[in-house]
């Protein structure tokens, strides 16, 4: 088995498998880090954060990259539906499920915070710079920003920012584009990925001028793709055998360690910055 500490991309599959993928130009090598007996449909990985796996059956597993195994499990059942986001805040875990129950899991059950963020949540994200601040949004559910130290009221409620609305095909995924704050990378249900400039409101017109070049995507077709944002080229495409739900990019220094990457050294330095920005 490959060393877990050198994996560049971590992927959670619908079968409950955790995969590591080394970003290698010459060879394609993906490694499974789960045992085949344990996973199943109820262990489907619904959300990931560094490096916790939120499964369909309500368990949040912690993976240790040093020993290449799951070190602990935590029962985080509550609410209805699958996990839509998981994050860490110090020693506690933040989870959000589809029915809108956002909960902070402390060691002491008395200190646990629970709040309702509205129905049909599609995504919960954490602010990487101040981990107590999270954002939620979903179908027919406006974007809200919450401060978990003061959870009674939302810090900010947007009007008319609803995920999943577009004239043709629904957007299924969204990520902030590096450095350029007015742009987002969106993917729709048809498997098309585009960069949208929010200032100008046009699709695919602002691919020039990006200083941070990589975006990784995974989907139901079981492929992991890494694109260069500058010239829209596909850099890396791997078949990973299982349907993939979520991915994490490693922010370890080992991007520079592999000798193959020396020619594209600047790419990976920038990539590091990108992973830091996205809080992965």
């Amino acid at each position: 088995m490959a060393q877990p500490s050198v994996q560049h991309v971590w992927l959670g599959a619908q079968t409950g498998l955790l995969k590591g993928e080394m970003f290698n130009v010459v060879r394609k090598n993906a490694t499974n880090f789960s045992e085949f007996q344990s996973p199943g449909r109820e262990h489907e990985v619904c959300a990931m954060c560094w490096i916790h796996l939120a499964c369909r059956n309500g368990l949040v597993k912690k993976f240790d990259t040093g020993s290449a195994g799951f070190v602990s499990e935590r029962d985080c059942t509550g609410g209805e539906g699958t996990f839509r986001g998981v994050a860490t805040w110090g020693s506690s875990l933040i989870t959000c499920v589809q029915s809108g129950l956002l909960k902070v899991w402390e060691e002491d059950p008395l200190n646990q915070v629970a709040l309702e963020v509205g129905r049909d949540v599609y995504k919960m994200r954490q602010n990487p710079e101040s981990p107590q601040i999270v954002a939620t949004g979903g179908k027919e559910n406006n974007l809200k920003i919450w401060d978990l130290q003061n959870p009674l009221k939302a810090v900010f409620k947007a009007k008319n920012i609803i995920l999943w609305q577009s004239p043709d095909n629904a957007f299924s995924t969204l990520s902030h584009s590096p450095l350029c704050f007015s742009s987002v990378v969106v993917g729709n249900t048809h498997g098309q990925v585009a960069v949208v400039d929010l200032r100008r409101g046009m699709v695919g017109c602002c691919l020039k001028g990006f200083s941070l070049p990589l975006v990784a995507s995974c989907g139901l077709d079981r492929f992991l793709r890494v694109h260069d944002l500058r010239n829209k080229q596909l850099l890396h495409k791997v078949y990973l055998k299982s349907r993939l739900n979520c991915l994490l990019l490693s922010s370890k220094e080992n991007w520079e360690v592999s000798p193959i990457f020396i020619s594209t050294f600047d790419v990976f330095l920038l990539f590091l910055y990108l992973t830091k920005r996205n809080g992965c």
Binding site: Q14, T15, L17, N32, F36, P39, G40, R41, R222, Y239, K241, S242, R243
Partner: peptide
């Protein structure tokens, strides 16, 4: 085609048994 399924592929069987 890299997606061609090998017979008795554990991962494919696992996915098919749970779909």
């Amino acid at each position: 085609d890299e997606t061609i399924v090998q017979p008795q592929d554990e991962e494919v069987l696992l996915e098919e048994n749970s779909d």
